[in-house]
Write a protein that binds this DNA or RNA. Structure first.
Length: 286
DNA sequence: CCTTGTGTTCTCCG
DNA sequence: CCGGAGAACACAAG
C-alpha cells in the first residue's frame, strides 16, 4: 500500500536511475493498466527523454521532453522496478519465489530505454494505472490535491485551515487527498497515535494543542518513514525490489491485541473509522 | 468475507 | 430548492 513515503522513496530512486534517459520502446501486456489507447503510448513515448520526476500525493509524474507527461498511480499493489541492462534482479522480499524476479507475471507494462535498462510497472491486483497528460492537464491534476506535507506550503495555519470547522473525524480528514495529499490508512493511524488523538475524534472538538500535535506528527512520521524507505506490509517494494524498513517502527497499524509500546498499559484496538480498518491505543490516545 | 485508494452517489441540513 | 458536507457505496482482484 504505497502512501507518500513509499511513493517518495520510489520517486527519489527514479530521479537517480532514469533522469535524462531516452525511451526506446514500451511493451504492454495488459492494456487496461493504461488510461487511453495503447497506441497513443507507443506514439507519444518512443524517443522521449526523461526530464523531471515529480510527485503529488501518491501520484508519480514523469515529465518528458516534447511536453509529454506520464503519470503513474500504484494504488494498492503497484510497483515500479528499475533494472540495469543484463542485471538479474532478485528482491529481498518474502512472498512467492515467482515474484522475486523482475520482470515477472505481474509485470504489465515495460518501458525500455535506449541504453538497455528497463522500468517495470507491476501490479498484482491491477488497480493502478498509467496516464498520459499535457502540461495543462498536469497543472489541473495537481490543483485537485490538498496541501503537500514536507513542503514549505505545509504550515500550521494551512493545516488548521484544511481542518476548518469540519464535523467529520480527524481520520477522514487525514485520508482526504483534497485536503492533505499523500496520507493513507497506515500513516493516518500512526499520526493519530503519535499525536495521542483518537482517530474517530471529530475535528471540531480538537483543541489547538491537539491540532498542533497532529500537524507535528504528520511531518515527523512521514519524514521518519521516508528515512527508512517506507513501510512494507503486504506488497510494497522500492525501485530495487526491496522492502521498506519502517514496518518495524509501526506503533499501532497491524498491532491489534499488542500491548501499547508507549504507555505499556493499553492494548491496541482495531475498529472501523471512515470506512477503513483503524488501530489505536484506548489508554493513551484521547 | 476481508484488504485500501479513489471516484461516485446518496442523504441530510441550513 | 440549492449547495455543501459527510457518509455510504462501488469497484478493482486475490
Amino acid at each position: 500500500m504505497p502512501e507518500l513515503p513509499e511513493v517518495e522513496t520510489i520517486r527519489r530512486d527514479l530521479v537517480n536511475h532514469i533522469t535524462s534517459k531516452q525511451i526506446d520502446s514500451i511493451r504492454v501486456r495488459l492494456p487496461r493498466m493504461l488510461r487511453g489507447a495503447k497506441a497513443a503510448y507507443q506514439k507519444q513515448l518512443r524517443g522521449r527523454k526523461v526530464q523531471v520526476i515529480d510527485r503529488v500525493g501518491k501520484l508519480i509524474i514523469i515529465e518528458l521532453d516534447e511536453e509529454s507527461n506520464l503519470l503513474v498511480h500504484l494504488k494498492m499493489t503497484g510497483q515500479l522496478i528499475y533494472k540495469e541492462k543484463d542485471l538479474v534482479l532478485a528482491g529481498g522480499h518474502s512472498y512467492g519465489s515467482d515474484t522475486k524476479q523482475y520482470p515477472n507475471k505481474y509485470t504489465y507494462v515495460t518501458i525500455r530505454f535506449i541504453d538497455g535498462s528497463e522500468l517495470y510497472f507491476n501490479d498484482m491486483r491491477t488497480f493502478g494505472y498509467m496516464q498520459l497528460a499535457t502540461p495543462d492537464e498536469v497543472v489541473s491534476i495537481k490543483a485537485g490535491f490538498g496541501i503537500e506535507p514536507l513542503t514549505k506550503n505545509f504550515t500550521y495555519p494551512s493545516f488548521d485551515k484544511a481542518l476548518g470547522k469540519r464535523t467529520t473525524t480527524i481520520k477522514a480528514v487525514l485520508l482526504n487527498q483534497k485536503l492533505i495529499a499523500g496520507i493513507g490508512n497506515i500513516y493516518a493511524d500512526e499520526i493519530c497515535f503519535d499525536a495521542k488523538v483518537l482517530p474517530d475524534r471529530r475535528v471540531n472538538t480538537l483543541t489547538a494543542s491537539e491540532k498542533k500535535a497532529l500537524f507535528n506528527a504528520c511531518t515527523s512520521i512521514l519524514r521518519l518513514a521516508i528515512k527508512h524507505r517506507g513501510t512494507t506490509f503486504n506488497n510494497y517494494v522500492d525501485s530495487y525490489g526491496k522492502s521498506g524498513s519502517f514496518t518495524s517502527f509501526l506503533k499501532v497499524y497491524g498491532r491489534a491485541g499488542d500491548q501499547c509500546a508507549r504507555c505499556r498499559k493499553g492494548i491496541i484496538q482495531k475498529t472501523r473509522v471512515a470506512g477503513r480498518g483503524t488501530h489505536f491505543c484506548s489508554n493513551c490516545q484521547k
